[in-house]
Nucleic acid binder design. Structure first.
Lengths: 230, 230
DNA sequence: TTGAAAATGCGTATTATTTACACAAATATA
DNA sequence: TATATTTGTGTAAATAATACGCATTTTCAA
């Protein structure tokens, strides 16, 4: 068994945001390098003394200034031996959700460009990043139905109609508003707040918030979140 | 960003087998090396010109002589920087299911020992392999409920009671035999064969087989396999 | 030879969940 | 003051899950 490996290991992050009923992903464009013409997922090589998680967080902070709400490992891409033209690079992709209303993205000191791209309208990306993104979208869709992660894309307080639109948009399905509300409320994991919507059309709506402690407690009792649609 | 990385990349395989109503995992013991006293998951370093998949398949063939029915990437373990005492090693763990009745395991030329261990009775393993195995068990339990992978642990033709016991054993739950049968049959993805069980107690039972083409066809129409229990 | 034991195979009543759909309430605006 | 718009609450019908009962077909032992 050869001890002489010349394989590099990188991390890439798929950061999803949601705004105005649209799903976005965060992309960067490097000013230098072989793939500088292409937009790419934020990421880079792992340092020798940092964990994979730390590597992702460092790269995101360096490159994009985002604050992450949710964060998990997605998949390791290492079956295309020539995915990077220079050296063999294996990339561990991570999947993150942010409340994009909470901050402004900004490019880092290397003068990289950073931009939200609507997921329905993604250009050709560097390396195999289109493939990685595709896998991220699949995971997002799947996870939305069996884990309460939709809240991590919304502001702390949100309208029921916003939550409903988020589900419709991402899953690309129609939902009956009334049944959706009934189902979510039946879980008991979201609470009414005292606040009302700032929107000035139609009947004023209460703002709700996700009750995470309650969710954790229910989970310990064996509760499973699940949203399904025909 | 440093180009001088000294991180090695390995693959490890969690190979599950099922026999006599018990779930097993395949472990090896190396004759040489720092961790030679411990049993470990089969695996090893990835070669420079092979994909991750190829690496797993090669290691399994070299080390254990198994034939795999099902095979998927599980998780990449790289957050414990010192998981291997010699160098930093990041391991991509794979998850495999085999019909253990189909072959005999045998140790390879390096005279490694290979053995099935019952999952309920696992010794302390090398490196962080207990943790990896734990994650594999979780994946198996979860996946069993929403993908028809239980069949990959059974012989081509099997009894309904064997399938039922497999679910009970792995999920550690009681199932109503009659409702289970009704539900599985309602999917239309398993077919009766002409053959009968060789068991010589009680009423003779038909052998069934998984109809994979039918399953694929149904899946294209939007069918989702799902087995749930209270 | 016959009855008990063991396991399969089929069915039905009850309960819970999902789906479809109706309408009143509260606000802005014309 | 009427209309448009969006929120909030039900209720009836259809579908699916659950809890059982019991006949059938074999082996084995009395």
């Amino acid at each position: 068994m050869s001890q002489n490996q010349n394989i590099r290991i990188a991390v890439d992050a798929i950061v999803f945001g949601y705004q105005n009923n649209k799903l976005y992903v965060l992309l960067i464009q490097q000013k230098f390098g072989a793939e500088k013409a292409y937009w790419a997922l934020p990421g880079g090589l792992v340092k020798e003394d940092e964990t994979l998680k730390e590597a992702v967080q460092r790269e995101l902070k360096e490159e994009t200034n985002v604050e992450i709400n949710y964060f998990e490992q997605l998949y390791t891409f290492g079956d295309d031996v020539h995915r990077d033209s220079r050296n063999r690079v294996i990339s561990v992709a991570y999947f993150a959700l942010v409340d994009s209303s909470k901050f402004e993205i900004k490019a880092d000191s290397d003068a990289e460009k950073v931009q939200w791209f609507e997921v329905k309208n993604i250009p050709e990306l560097a390396f195999d990043h289109n493939l990685i993104l595709q896998k991220g979208i699949e995971r997002l869709k799947a996870k939305l139905t069996y884990q309460p992660i939709g809240f991590d894309l919304l502001p702390k307080e949100f309208l029921f109609s916003e939550l409903e639109n988020l589900y419709c948009t991402i899953l690309e399905k129609e939902i009956d508003r009334r049944n959706f509300r009934k189902k979510i409320l039946s879980f008991g994991i979201i609470s009414e707040t005292e606040h009302f919507s700032p929107v000035k059309t139609g009947r004023p709506a209460k703002l709700f918030k996700f009750n995470k402690p309650k969710y954790n407690a229910l989970q310990d009792e064996g509760f499973h979140f699940e949203i399904k649609f025909a």
